[in-house]
Design a protein around this nucleic acid. Sequence first.
DNA 1: AACCGGCCCAACCGCGACTTC
DNA 2: CGAAGTCGCGGTTGGGCCGGT
Length: 291
Amino acid sequence: MGRSPCCSKEGLNRGAWTAHEDKILTDYITLHGEGRWRNLPKRAGLKRCGKSCRLRWLNYLRPDIKRGNISPDEEDLIIRLHNLLGNRWSLIAGRLPGRTDNEIKNYWNTNLGKKLHNKDKDPHLQKNNNNNKNDVGFYGEEAAPNTNTLNSPPVSVVRTKATKCSKVFINPPVPPLNSMGNQTTPYEAGWLSFEGITEKEMRWSSTTTEDYLLGDFNVGELCLSDLLNSEMCNNNNNSDSLSPSCCDQPFVFSDDILNDWTQTNAAHPEPHSFTSFLQSTHSDQWLPPIN
DNA sequence: AACCGGCCCAACCGCGACTTC
DNA sequence: CGAAGTCGCGGTTGGGCCGGT
């Protein structure tokens, strides 16, 4: 698909914004509202590209922005959300009022990533941390980093640019062999039974060193109830039950949460999507704990 | 005082998703 | 239905700041 350059570079200011430019942008948006970024600079009389204006507004000029000093609570939440979601900064930022994705990303890269990286090197902290062999580091790798959530389930998250959480790596137990002596997929084994999700969309992959399940689904369309009803979210502790998502420690959803998020009613005639669930206050209640 | 290196963070870039026509 | 336009995201860069030498 063809895509024109973001903006003509000629005659446009670049680099740091001046107070004057900030004022022009703020005044314009106060008057006309956000959006239509492409045309905004021309209308506002700014020699900036629309993208730059959008970024400046969202990351710096918005009135509801909270700046500096990430609190311990916020840090805790960032770690937990990152453990769950990976580098999906916008989604993480959505759970932290007043914080921007850029700020959280920077904070992670400059503080938390380093902190956690050092912890990984600490032999005392590594002893419980051998589950995530796929975790290579915290930049540009497939899995979310090991954090100090060392006793939390070995759920790793695929980095994806998608706006929807659509891919999750899960370390499953090895599925049984079929009658031909070949290894079955979790789907064939009956572990996975998302309504409306085909085996094609639930891909099983095996490597020489690690087996993992790649769940490739559109959670915007997937109903949370489907997810909850699947084996991936089995919340009983029966050791016989197959719980490929987290092996020993499946996601645990409280009855309250389940009731709220699986029931439809007059107010919510449609089943809730997983995306909306992640954006709800409930998600706090089942995020992997910090130990 | 000058230089250097590391850190931080605002801003930029490229690309995929989404929307419009 | 496909092409074009737009938006939003995550990764990366670069310049200012600061502490150490």
